[in-house]
Structure formats: structure tokens, C-alpha cells
Design a protein around this nucleic acid. Structure first.
Lengths: 348, 348
DNA sequence: ATGAAAGCGCTAACAC
DNA sequence: GTGTTAGCGCTTTCAT
């Protein structure tokens, strides 16, 4: 079943069929109708492989995530897929398993398959830069959540706001001595959050600038970090963590050592993972506006910004839970899930 | 950069280059070497689109999951991707968003792109059957975790063993009055687990056969189900849940109503989600052997079983946690706070 | 074992 | 606007 069959059925040339079906060039209305009817009658489907070979385009988009097994990326992928489906584009997802070399292979695969739009959350702040920049020449590309190149569009949750939200909140709960526990890896978010903490904490607790710890995104590192805090900085009453898993570890260790969370020390996470609401105490965290990210990223993908790369900094949302609620007078009634699903994640 | 360039460089015909590079047919050793050297020198890469068009195959595999945002599937996808990477095949992941129609589109997309191997976890026990069976004529296909067709290979965790493990365990903890809380959806696992419960519980507590509740895989349904149990079957001391989220909801509601878990009533989940180990009480659950699933599925994909469809029933693993530990003499010391970030799920 | 040549199904020039 | 035709880069007969 090829175009030739449709052409015969419709009584026109294959070129007309192609033009009618691809919508690229104009054809007469009666031709269009004839072709569409013939195609429907025969159950004809355009062959994406043949058209990709001939035209060099495929009309599909590829998404490369650092690791599909990490908590945040399935949600991101889901949001992007939904958004794209509305425009009728299908998305192919690849996971780089946190390895820049595999990431390069993934991108090369996509390009070789004539994918003309690539969404990527680069594994490594530095090592992913080349592959991102190189891909620019073969496809339109947007970095999501993480980034490696400043010459390519980016849409990410503003790390300054993310950290700002938790610091302000903890300060409002009466915290005065801050510390930060992050990861030493090379994802841009890790780096940005640490930097944002250093900048912001000065205004609240200048000594907090020195109190930063870097390990990895694991429960075990949270335990270790909590021990170090108790040992060296026992007067700390607010710990900002780079993600929820670390926060959970920190909290567990504090409790084990007889500290009360949040009364003795308040703790926050990042990214609002599932277990943040179910662990006990539940963990105050910062939610990323996944849906908005998807919309903005998709917009940038197809937008014809011939000039400068654009950076979309999105507004995160603080989710207050038990791990920081020390101030009983101020605390609103504990609502775990916001009732309004309305989107307040307006971009700045 | 095409094959012609390589042919010229190597001093042979394009046909020989094709033969040498694809490894399909034999070429003389010196030709092989010449071609490989030329290809390397020029940095030549085979064009997957052109070869797919001409040969009808692509050498890649597609994975269609019901919903990438659901807890279990990222892990499954990750396992499959790792396994495939070892064989040098790249995998494209598609999510059907729990919609059989979208699932059909995904499969059609893959077939249109000449993917010759498809891994699928069908959305719907019945409605996905046709698409799975139809795909068989265009690609070798294996159902993973869920299934919709008995005419196609399946690899899944044995639901009877899964349910058997939790029932036996609870019985050993002294439980005598059982109930089951599952989902009314149409994924094969939901159906199988319910059926397995009905069959197995007879041997322990015949009246338990009648005590089954079906809702959906949500926290809210867990709350609701717990209320109903307290209302109608207040003497129940063991609740088997279809997944961890339901179990969590059930536990929360029981505690809210003043029951002690596990002393008054023991509760189990399924699938061993992240939060099972972090919620309090932590939830006894059954882990699916993802790695083994991946290995078996990949094996079936390429195995040339011309005859009957094979069914691989894999062995699940019970993870005992606080939600069922009532028997103090038998219980090992409850360790919630492991310091190592190493996997603490080997605590059977 | 190798080369020449015919397509895979489509789109993009190019004529009309 | 529409049809004719030449490829996109490769694999696969078919000769040799």
C-alpha cells in the first residue's frame, strides 16, 4: 500500500497525493477531497521512514533524560508527552543512565533518525556541553530542568527562588542558624542550588555561608551529613537539603540522635517527591512546575527564535509540611494537598 | 557522507561496503579490513533510516508502558534499557498514558518506524488484546508485567506467589481474618492478584474469600476501603492490598481511627515502592524481580520460538517491614535507620 | 566473492 | 496547480 495506489484511486498523480496529504503545498479543493477520500477508503498511512529519508525530517521529537529511574524525570516526561500529544507529535524517550557517553549516543541516535526537535536534560553541567551544542546544527533543541550550554534555550525552575522560598519560610518560623546539604555531582541544579544558598543565606545568617556539605543524592549521605552537623555545628536549627532523599536521611538521623524535627531543627527538601508527604514527619519541599515547564519547552521548540537563546526561569511552589512547622501561631491548618489545581506557576 | 565515499576510499563497490559493514554476507578478509579502515578514517556511520526503508528492519526495540509516571514502570524501563544496551541495541520508550487508543497509536508508530522488536505492558487486560495480537505479524513481541494476549510471550511476576507470600507471612504472624483491597481497573495484575487472593485465602480463612474491595490505585481509595472494613468487618486483622499506595491509605485511616498497625491489624502492599520503606509504620511489600524480568524478556524477544507462546512466571520477594511485624519473638530488631546508602531491601 | 543495477516509498525540482 | 522524474542512502537480486 503506497502512494501510487492512492493516486490511482483518486485519479491524480503521486505528487498531488503527497502535496494533499502533507499539506505542504496547496492543491485544488476537489483534488484534496478526492485524495483524502481515497486514502481513507484504502486505509492508507504515510510512511514515516520514506518521508524521513527523502525530506530529512520526521516531525517527531526526542526526549533525553539523565535517568528515567530518578524520581523527577518520569513526571517531566509525562508532562512533555501530554503537551506534545495535543499538537499531534509523538515523542520518543531515551534515558542516558547518568552517563555522558551514553547521552551522546542517545542524541546521535535521534539525529540519525531525523528527529528534528530534541528536548534534553543534560547529565553533566560541563561534559554534556559539546553534545548539546553540536546537536544544535541538526535539530532545534531545548534544555529542560538541567542545562549544559548557555547558547541553547533553557527552561528551568529558578534555583534562586527555590532556595529563597525555603530560607524565607524557615526564617519566618524563627530559624536563625542555617546549613545546606547538597550533592557534589555535576548536574546544573545541584550547582545552582548550592550557589543560590550561599548568596541568599548571607542576608539572614552570614555564618551560614560556610556551613555547606556536599555528598550525593542518597539517604545514606543524609545520615552522614546530619552526624557532621551535630558534631561541628550543633547550634544549627535549619537545614536546607538539595533534594528530598537527603532531607529524609537528615531527618532520620536527627531523630535517632534524639533531636526533635522541627522543634530543635527544621529541615527542607527539594522537588516534592512522593515520600515527602508520606514520611513522618512529612517533609517541607519545593515543587517544580512540571506542566508549565512542558508548555514553555514545547513553545521554544517550535518557536523560530532566530536570535539569542532564551532562558525561561519558572516559579517554584513551596509545600509546607511538618518538618518545618515550629511556629504554631502562624501555621495554617495542615493541608497536605493544595485544593486548587489552578496553576500559579507564572513565569517571571 | 555516504557509502559511496567509503567504497571509493576502500577501492571496492558499495555492495561490498554494505556487506562488510552489515555483516550479513561474507566478504574476503582483506576487503573487510579495507572497508572498516576506510569507514573509520572517514568517520562513516550507517544511515538507520535508509537501511530501514530498504530492508524493512531497524534493529531497535520499542517499549510501550501504560504510564511512565506510575511508580513501577521507570524501574522496569531502566532494567530493560540496561539489558538491551549490553547487546548494543537502543530502545525507544513510549508511554500510553493509560489509554488503549493511545497505546494503539504507540504500537503503530513503532511498527511504521520498522522497529522489529516490541516490549509492551498492555494497558488493558481486554482492550489491548487486538493491538498486541496484530503487532505480532510485524514484529516479535513480548508482554512484560501485564498481559492482554495468551498467544504472545509473557514474562510476569507470579501473582499466586506474590499473594501467597503475604498471606503465609501474615498467617505466621498470627493473623486469622483476612480482607483484600484492590483496584477495579483492567490491568491484568489487578485481576490476577484478586483471583490469587480468592484462591489462596480459602486455605487459611475461608470467610476471607468474600471480603474483597475494589476501587482504584489511590491513597483516597485506601482511606475509603479502611472505613468500610472497620464498619462491616471490624474483626479483620489482616488486610492485603493490591499495591503500596492503597496500603498506605488503609494504614493512615486505621491509625486515624485509633487502630494500631500492626498490632490490631496487619497490612501489606505490593511492588515495594519508594515510600514503603520511609512511611511510618513502614510497609511490608512484595518486590518484583525487575532485573530478571528484563533478562527473560530480552531473551524471548530474540529467541526463535517458532512454536507456542511461552509464559515466564518469576519469583517475587517478600520484604517484611513494620506494618506486619506483630510477633515480637520472631521479629528481628526493627532497623529503620540504616546508615549505609546500600540497598536495605534485603531484609526478608 | 564481487559489482552493477534495481528499487524501498516518498518529496522536491522542474516543466507545463 | 499539476504531472513527470530524479533521487534520499541503503540492501539485495542478478549476473559474473
Amino acid at each position: 500500500m503506497t502512494m501510487e495506489d492512492v493516486a490511482r484511486e483518486a485519479g491524480v498523480s503521486v505528487a498531488s497525493v503527497s502535496r494533499a496529504l502533507s499539506g505542504a503545498r496547496r492543491v485544488r479543493d476537489d483534488v484534496l477531497e478526492n485524495v483524502q477520500r481515497a486514502a481513507r477508503k484504502l486505509g492508507y498511512q504515510l510512511d514515516p521512514i520514506a518521508r524521513a529519508l527523502r525530506s530529512g525530517r520526521s516531525g517527531t521529537v526526542g526526549l533525553v533524560v539523565p535517568d528515567i529511574a530518578s524520581p523527577f524525570f518520569p513526571a517531566l516526561a509525562s508532562g512533555l508527552e501530554s503537551g506534545l500529544r495535543e499538537t499531534g507529535t509523538s515523542m520518543f524517550l531515551l534515558s542516558a543512565q547518568n552517563d555522558p557517553d551514553l547521552e551522546r549516543e542517545c542524541v546521535d541516535q535521534l539525529i540519525a533518525r531525523r528527529v528534528d526537535k530534541i528536548l534534553i536534560s543534560p547529565v553533566h553541567h560541563v561534559r554534556s556541553r559539546r553534545i548539546v551544542d553540536q546537536a544544535r546544527s541538526s535539530a532545534s533543541i531545548v534544555q529542560v530542568d538541567r542545562y549544559a550550554s548557555l547558547r541553547t534555550h533553557r527552561v528551568l525552575t529558578d534555583p534562586r527562588q527555590t532556595i529563597g522560598l525555603v530560607l524565607d519560610h524557615m526564617a519566618s518560623q524563627g530559624c536563625v542558624r542555617f546549613a545546606f546539604v547538597g550533592a557534589a555531582d555535576s548536574a546544573s541544579v545541584s550547582i545552582s542550588r548550592l550557589a543560590a544558598y550561599r548568596t541568599k543565606v548571607k542576608q539572614i545568617d552570614a555564618s551560614g555561608v560556610e556551613r555547606t556539605l556536599a555528598g550525593d543524592y542518597s539517604l545514606g549521605w543524609g545520615h552522614e551529613a546530619a552526624k557532621r552537623i551535630l558534631q561541628h555545628w550543633s547550634d544549627v536549627d535549619a537545614v536546607v537539603c538539595g533534594n528530598d532523599l537527603i532531607a529524609l536521611g537528615v531527618i532520620q538521623e536527627f531523630i535517632k540522635q534524639g533531636r526533635d524535627v522541627p522543634k530543635d531543627v527544621a529541615v527542607t527538601g527539594c522537588d516534592d517527591s512522593v515520600f515527602s508527604s508520606t514520611s513522618r514527619p512529612s517533609i517541607t519541599s519545593v515543587e517544580q512546575p512540571v506542566t508549565v515547564m512542558a508548555v514553555r519547552a514545547i513553545g521554544l521548540l517550535s518557536g523560530h527564535f532566530t536570535n539569542d537563546p532564551v532562558t525561561a526561569l519558572l516559579k517554584p511552589k513551596l509545600i509546607v509540611r511538618e518538618s518545618t512547622r515550629r511556629n504554631l501561631e502562624c501555621a495554617s491548618t495542615p493541608k497536605r494537598l493544595s485544593t486548587s489545581s489552578a496553576n500559579q506557576n507564572n513565569e517571571i
